[in-house]
Amino acid sequence: NLYFQGLKYMVPGARVTRGLDWKWRDQDGSPQGEGTVTGELHNGWIDVTWDAGGSNSYRMGAEGKFDLKLAP
């Protein structure tokens, strides 16, 4: 699974964008943008601060869902 392989790169400072299971509307800005991981992966959740200004926790394994992917 590509998403599980990418988890080791989901570290503080990593750049991310919305992924396969995104369901959080425009939390990442409008139009959709990139963000920066600000915390360690914990119980399948990870913290992100978006360039647009907001921050929140997103699923990276929790509930079998992956809200994020590494930015290109």
Rank of each mutant, 00 (worst) to 15 (best):
N1Y: 08
L2E: 15
L2H: 15
L2G: 15
L2C: 15
L2P: 15
L2D: 15
L2V: 12
F4S: 11
F4E: 15
Q5T: 13
G6H: 15
G6S: 14
L7M: 13
K8P: 10
K8Y: 08
Y9A: 09
Y9H: 12
Y9V: 08
M10E: 05
M10K: 03
M10Y: 14
P12N: 11
G13Y: 04
G13T: 03
G13R: 03
A14K: 05
A14D: 06
A14Y: 03
A14C: 15
R15H: 04
V16R: 00
T17M: 13
R18K: 05
R18N: 01
R18A: 06
R18T: 05
R18E: 01
R18I: 08
R18C: 07
G19W: 06
L20A: 11
D21P: 02
W22T: 04
W22A: 05
K23T: 10
K23Q: 13
K23A: 11
K23D: 11
W24I: 05
W24M: 05
R25Q: 14
R25A: 15
R25M: 15
R25E: 14
D26W: 06
Q27R: 04
Q27I: 05
Q27F: 06
D28I: 05
D28W: 05
D28Q: 05
D28H: 05
D28Y: 04
G29D: 08
S30I: 14
S30C: 15
P31R: 06
P31Y: 08
P31I: 09
Q32H: 12
Q32M: 12
Q32S: 14
Q32R: 11
G33A: 09
G33S: 12
G33N: 05
G33M: 09
E34H: 12
G35A: 01
G35T: 01
T36K: 05
T36E: 06
T36Y: 06
T36W: 06
V37T: 04
V37Y: 01
T38G: 05
T38H: 07
T38Q: 08
G39E: 05
G39C: 12
E40G: 11
E40K: 12
E40Q: 13
N43V: 08
N43S: 09
N43D: 12
G44M: 03
W45K: 02
W45A: 01
W45V: 03
D47P: 12
D47L: 14
D47N: 13
V48G: 00
V48E: 00
W50N: 00
W50G: 00
W50S: 00
W50I: 00
W50F: 01
D51Q: 03
A52V: 08
G53P: 00
G53S: 03
G54C: 15
G54S: 10
G54V: 10
S55N: 10
S55W: 11
S55V: 11
S55Q: 11
S55Y: 10
S55K: 09
N56M: 07
S57V: 10
S57I: 10
S57C: 15
Y58K: 02
Y58F: 03
R59D: 02
M60S: 02
M60E: 02
M60W: 08
G61F: 00
G61W: 03
G61V: 02
G61L: 02
G61Q: 02
A62I: 05
E63L: 08
E63P: 00
G64Q: 07
G64S: 08
G64K: 06
K65S: 09
K65N: 04
K65I: 05
K65G: 05
F66A: 04
F66H: 04
F66P: 01
F66K: 03
F66L: 05
F66Q: 04
D67F: 03
L68I: 09
K69D: 11
K69G: 07
K69L: 13
K69N: 12
L70R: 06
L70S: 04
L70M: 10
L70P: 09
A71Y: 06
P72A: 12
P72I: 13
P72K: 12
